[in-house]
Design a protein around this nucleic acid. Structure first.
Lengths: 247, 247
DNA sequence: CGTCAGCTTGACTCATCTCAACTAGGGTGG
DNA sequence: CCACCCTAGTTGAGATGAGTCAAGCTGACG
């Protein structure tokens, strides 16, 4: 589908493990916010030794629910959406992964969800077997993973409240505020929130339809709380949006 | 509220740490399905050494969102519901805990949710500090906790699909089938599903209203898929209910 | 025997969905 | 360069699943 995008320069690094000196942890912009930071990057037997750089074009599938789970990933650039499908095609996005996020905390035999690049993505790929033995070797890595898992669990619980008990307006407001906070931690702006995902993606994340998401954003724009800009929104009145997101 | 229920015989064991020979892990019916099973019960410095038996009457609050998280729990008997409240009182139940389940996988400074006994509950209480140092001592316990955390995460993700993308009928059917499976693993029946929680609890778990839950169950009963019995339902046609729960 | 909490059922409302038309921007090929 | 197409987004009008409000039922308990 978007395989032509794989032909971009980034891709050249992927199969070249010798190039890692320039592309490795030392120059990784998200190393310190990742699970990686718990191990010394230069240490032999570190994560870097088993990392493989991989790249995906916009719209490409990274992994598929039900496939053998033979790798875990750490996102370096781009945005990924994780989703589950019902047999009739209804989709629920269970989360977006931004740079620095880890994918594959649970290591069951099969992936319990699918993952898609919503914009061009580069990531570190760790073979499951090598990663598992590293985890067994390094208790601090297991500790860090557990921390990450419980953090995600808390996010998931918050999202359940959103899905089960909030109105469309509140859902959209909470989504924007939450995303702003995540971009901010990665050094992003406080006013302009990039929205690389489509309205359909947002809808499938919030348990709404794309029309409702569009209408709600238009409504917020009409009441001067935000401004719709290409590939994002600019918050004009974060206070009122936060109040809507109520928590 | 239900403090009079605390006067039942069970309660007598709680403050008596010497009685643990009869009440401890050796006689615990859920020991082998709990996180506890990873440590030898007789081993000095085991979980048993730091466990304290606690009991709660029906409706009693076990912990409150925002309170200092100074203990974790393992449920021995009874059913607990975990929930979050929005400022205006809307409630989302994020899960039910049955015998053998662990409460407090995440160990943040404050509980991220509240917990209520929906029927009389007895549990093992572990002081957070003692539990934390035990976890640091025993890597296999950390490993087990991580396993439990990722398991819960997967359940949470499934529940997000339910909350965001399923109809009322599907929600109720999936709830019943899921609960049946959990009771079954604890040695319960395959046809009669105990429902110790109220319709309101079920509604707050499924993102519905109590009226909708009641109507939906009535509808399933009218179409001969189940029979409503006191404090539960009896599945007459698990196949069709499973089909409704679709996944 | 009265009260009360939990549950059921009915009638009506409304937030969100569905279906559909229309617009805007980007890429492609003649 | 223009004509065309295609995807993403917006907006409107009408349908509907679930919510709201209200009445009544039932069993437990004092």
């Amino acid at each position: 589908m978007a395989s032509q995008e794989m032909a971009e320069p980034l891709d050249a690094l992927a199969p070249c493990s010798h190039a890692r000196a320039e592309s490795g942890c030392a120059v990784c912009k998200v190393w310190d916010v990742s699970v990686c930071a718990v191990l010394d990057a230069s240490e032999p037997g570190s994560l870097q030794a088993i990392a493989e750089g991989v790249h995906y074009g916009k719209g490409e599938t990274i992994l598929l629910q039900g496939d053998a789970a033979d790798a875990v990933y750490n996102i370096r650039h781009g945005t990924v959406c994780l989703y589950k499908l019902l047999p009739d095609g209804r989709r629920q996005i269970i989360g977006f992964r931004l740079p620095g996020d880890f994918m594959g905390l649970a290591l069951p035999d099969q992936y319990p969800f699918s993952a898609n690049a919503v914009e061009p993505v580069s990531a570190c790929r760790f073979a499951r077997s090598a990663f598992t033995s590293l985890v067994n070797d390094k208790p601090q890595l297991l500790h860090r993973l557990h921390e990450a898992a419980t953090h995600e669990l808390r996010l998931a619980q918050n999202h359940m409240v959103l899905l089960g008990r909030r109105t469309a307006d509140e859902k959209v407001a909470a989504f924007l505020i939450g995303l702003r906070e995540r971009w901010r931690r990665l050094g992003g702006s406080l006013v302009t929130i990039p929205l690389p995902m489509t309205r359909q993606d947002i809808a499938d994340y919030l348990g709404l339809t794309l029309e409702t998401v569009s209408r709600t954003i238009s409504k917020l724009a009409r009441s001067k709380m935000l401004l719709v800009v290409p590939d994002g929104v600019r918050l004009l009145d974060p206070g009122r949006i936060k109040a809507l997101a109520a928590s």
